[in-house]
Design a protein around this nucleic acid. Structure first.
Length: 489
RNA sequence: GGCCCUAUCGUCUAGCGGCUAGGACACAGGAUUCUCAUUCCUGUAACCGGGGUUCGAUUCCCCGUAGGGUCACCA
């Protein structure tokens, strides 16, 4: 195929600025992004701010920050207008008015002659008779003059059954009851979503619309607007819902859905997040689970998007994060683990050397930074910054007759360590293991480790010694021996 | 209520008429290990129900059931 004749793909993510982005919305953005990038296409961030009431200040910046964190770069956005002008709908009012006028002039749109109260009466009457309310049943015989003070409604061009194709769901169909004379322009001069998104997608050359499946029900209405405008609709790509844990509802902000940026605070890597999101509601058809963003771009295929709703599997997200964390250098991992506003002493520059020694240990025990911070708070790493407090009984190895038995062994370890200066865990292990094996590993290593950590469960003693240094090691061993002595007397 | 959509292990999913129904997370057991963790091995666990079509249905059709969505001057 001629390179110049490649199929052009343009997708967009079009949130309204009503607060933060949650995992469901971000997934829609990701799929739109991946599909565009897969085809060397264009990805647009459009802001649908046609409802002034619901707008939340700072939302646009927050949305941009969220996409930036995940690395979902867009060619056109709030700071980078396209040839068609702004991507912020409130800055495009003239465009919508122009199209509205076009429909009005052709008799395909008319001003709503009723007050909102009157429409409510119609609605209530329909409801009382247990039949669906349709505005078009009340369409005036002759259309008035539209002066902008009344909402402008579409005159449904043809009341019929619509059948259309959805890239995910296949053939979809809905009868005339799904069609109505929807409002195109509100009384405040702003367009409705129904109208504005169609015009924008057309003007911006959008080829594929990724959006939540809740829009399937209103697609016939959209189709009737496309018809009225004489436009060919783009490809519809309906995203399966992300459900709440209990599956009783679509995940929403009211149900405790987290701000996507909270995952960043917790320490999830953007690549892990992207990897995880891609795998909920989509799969490559192979058994590969670990993907970089680029790998996803290479294999993403909208025909493999899932139809059924999915529940977020947080355990798998944790697992994936650990897999992605494995790609960091020790240096980067250290920066990662200390990033944030936690104030534990081990994270201060004073203990940087100790923390560096502990990095491999922390890596193996941690899925995400917040997990490490919790362990820190629980005192699991206190051995690194202070001499431990512990009950002497803890020194008792399960096969030992009593605590006193450990003392001579700890003394011997001290003697072996005293002249030794190569203070890294491998060298220390090589130094002490022959002795430990001659006596019994548990008999030596258990009390040694407890003397150093003050804990039943901890990293191995050699790592601890390497972390705290020679001086502290010898001090803690002496203290343990003194403790045993004290108990005996 | 009308209309629309969906349905494989606990969760994410593979499957596109014939498979011992595969993988991942989680879980359980074992090996390694002084403990915890890691790592490795093994295992438990699923086709919503009923009718068809077919030589043969997880797969195709219909009817149930369950769940979701939608019926705004919100998107």
């Amino acid at each position: 195929m001629d390179h110049n004749q490649q199929t052009l793909v343009v997708t967009r993510f079009a949130p309204s600025p009503t607060g933060f982005l949650h995992i469901g919305g971000v997934r829609t953005a990701l799929f739109a992004y991946l599909h565009a990038k897969r085809h060397n296409g264009t990805f647009i961030l459009r802001i649908e701010d046609t409802d002034k009431e619901r707008e939340v200040a700072g939302s646009i910046e927050h949305i941009q920050a969220s996409l930036a964190w995940l690395g979902l770069e867009y060619e056109y956005g709030p700071d980078t207008p396209g040839p068609w002008g702004s991507v912020i709908q409130s800055e495009r009012l003239a465009t919508y008015q122009r199209y509205a006028k076009l429909l009005y002039d052709k008799g395909l749109a008319y001003p709503d002659p009723y007050t909102q109260e009157e429409v409510e009466v119609f609605r209530a009457a329909a409801s009382a008779e247990k039949r669906p309310f349709l505005f078009r049943d009340h369409r005036p015989a002759t259309f008035g003059v539209w002066d902008g003070s009344q909402p402008l409604r579409l005159k449904v061009p043809e009341v019929k059954r619509y059948t259309w194709h959805d890239a995910v769901r296949g053939e979809l169909t809905a009868g005339p009851e799904a069609l109505d004379d929807v409002i195109l322009i509100k009384a405040d001069g702003y367009p409705t979503y129904n109208f504005a998104h169609i015009i924008d997608d057309h003007e911006m050359g959008v080829t594929h619309i990724m959006r939540a499946d809740e829009f399937i029900a209103s697609t016939p209405k959209f189709l009737s607007i496309y018809d009225a405008l004489g436009l060919t609709p783009p490809v519809f790509v309906s995203m399966p819902p992300v459900l709440r844990d209990d599956r009783t509802k679509k995940l929403g902000k009211r149900d405790g859905a987290k701000d996507i940026l909270d995952y960043r605070t917790d320490g999830f890597l953007p690549e892990a997040m992207v990897n995880f999101l891609a795998l909920t509601g989509w799969n490559p058809g192979t058994e590969q689970e670990f993907f970089s963003k680029q790998e996803l771009i290479n294999v993403f295929d909208i025909t493999k998007i899932q139809r059924a709703g999915a529940v977020i599997n947080e355990e798998k997200l944790l697992w994936l994060n650990k897999q992605h964390l494995a790609g960091l250098s020790d240096e980067d991992y250290l920066a990662y683990i200390t990033d944030g506003d936690c104030v534990h002493p081990l994270l201060s520059t004073e203990h940087r050397a100790a923390l560096e020694v502990l990095v491999p240990t922390i890596r193996e025990r941690t899925h995400v930074r917040s997990e490490f911070l919790t362990a820190l708070g629980a005192g699991e790493y206190d051995f690194a910054v202070a001499a431990p407090q512990y009950d002497t009984a803890l020194l008792l190895w399960k096969k030992d007759p009593d605590v006193a038995a450990a003392q001579p062994r700890l003394e011997q370890v001290k003697n072996l360590l005293a002249p030794h200066n190569d203070w890294n865990s491998e060298a220390l292990k090589a130094l002490l293991m022959p002795y430990a094996e001659s006596v019994g590993k548990g008999e030596v290593l258990w009390p040694l480790r407890v003397a150093l950590s003050g804990r039943q469960n901890s990293p191995d003693p050699f790592t601890i010694m390497a972390t705290i240094g020679k001086e502290a090691t010898l001090e803690r061993l002496s203290a343990a021996c003194a403790k045993i002595q004290g108990d005996a007397s």
